[in-house]
Design a protein around this nucleic acid. Structure first.
Lengths: 242, 242
DNA sequence: CGGCAATTTGACTGTGGTCAACGTGGGTGG
DNA sequence: CCACCCACGTTGACCACAGTCAAATTGCCG
């Protein structure tokens, strides 16, 4: 199922309307957007394709336009954790800007994706010419730092059920799609994925979600989660006794 | 014991030799350092003093020159975690740059500290005038993001003993002081602190460290940790069976 | 020297991990 | 187009790691 990446529009001029509304380009003038796009390429990644791998040299950084990516890290002992999911408008693979010369994780397309990419070496020039871009990028990285700290807080202090509830609610906020029965997470998400986000096992996740399904809180199936009763799920996320 | 902050050198001209060797100012020219220092104040915080508090408006950002700070967050349920320790040369309280208008945590001086501070509002101008400062700051924030991900990995996949071993080793690297018996962490650090860094309880930390002490790996007392046998501690951090 | 905070240690318990076996649905190939 | 197969999911039994509760001890600080 993995598809090899294919180039698109490398010679084609990229239109700034693709990106000018994204938070990364907030406050930037049209000319600045054009200048930044000058050095960008667009590329398509089929479902299952690996955009970059952990420890690989960080040749490029990316901006996701369409689709959804999963970023994972593998420990020395071979266990995997999900670092985050990348949403449209997010930057990813910015290792070089963060002071690394290799990617710290692996990112995989969970659905068909379209991304822009720049050579990492360009970053210093871009922020030199466009201080607002630097400020915006720093805000986005800041958001990721907050997310990481929130997860640390949750894993440190909450029991598994509340952690799973928080994880599902966050994904619903980022990738919720109204459907007949409620709000559905619009990309394939396995029990294993949820376990790797919440520091537990797929078994425990399955047990918890089965209980929720029986209680009418969610509806779920193979790599599919629909939240039926959001307030109830929020109550579970907040409360210890239930 | 908490001391109220006192101003120092507000009118006094700050010398760039204080800061020009720090990573935040790497590659910056002398004139740039002077320009940045123009808007800085220096301030002293006595042991136990609170530099800023969670949810407080982020009026300033800081650079630690001397001492050591602990940054904590409190959950809605009232439980506390240690986010990190701030070492000399680190920036902290950069909430505004990360897109927040309040501090996400509380920072407390664990020993007497000296810090520079700037009004948060100045940040955009500073990075506008000094792109290298932006690049350096982003690298430092990137390092914190890596740290957070490493802790997530550890809490998710390792048992308590290995997590504690990793935490102690990291602190020894950052704040190790050669002493008669080995390498000592040069600031007061309680079992509770270690527990809040590693998502466990002070009881479990105490049991683990008692065992290590009996085995001659460390020597410890009231808010004091000396690593006697670093290689052995590294082996504990790496291995599961021991 | 009195008092309190930090630490130690013991006994018990429960959450959630491990091991194992069995469903099930969807994609793929014949 | 249907059937097979495999990845994904479910469920049960068991038990261990580490959290909780409790109490004693130590060592600073004032």
């Amino acid at each position: 199922m993995p598809t090899s990446p294919t180039d698109h529009g490398v010679t084609l001029k990229l239109d700034r309307s693709l990106i000018s509304d994204l938070p990364l380009f907030a406050e930037l003038e049209a000319a600045a957007c054009d200048d930044i796009l000058e050095t960008a390429h667009a590329r398509h990644y089929g479902k299952g394709a690996v955009v970059f791998s952990q420890t690989e040299a960080a040749h490029s950084f990316f901006l996701l336009l369409h689709g959804r990516l999963r970023v994972t890290q593998v420990t020395a002992a071979g266990e995997q954790i999900v670092v985050r999911f990348v949403n449209p408008g997010d930057i990813f693979g910015v290792a070089m800007a963060l002071g690394r010369d290799t990617y710290p994780g692996t990112s995989t397309a969970v659905v068909d994706c379209l991304a822009l990419l720049w050579p990492s070496a360009i970053w210093p020039q871009l922020i030199g010419r466009h201080p607002l871009l630097a400020a915006n990028a720093m805000r986005m990285i800041g958001g990721r730092l907050q997310d990481a700290h929130q997860r640390l807080r949750e894993i440190s202090t909450e029991d598994v059920e509340r952690r799973v509830a928080h994880a599902i609610l966050k994904l619903v906020d980022e990738a919720g799609q109204k459907s007949a029965a409620g709000v559905e997470i619009d990309f394939p998400l396995s029990r294993q994925d949820i376990a790797e986000m919440t520091a537990t096992t797929l078994h425990t996740v399955s047990r918890i979600m089965s209980a929720w399904e029986a209680a009418g809180v969610i509806e779920s199936g193979r790599q599919r989660v629909v939240v039926r009763d959001r307030p109830r799920l929020m109550a579970i996320a907040a409360n210890a006794d239930d």
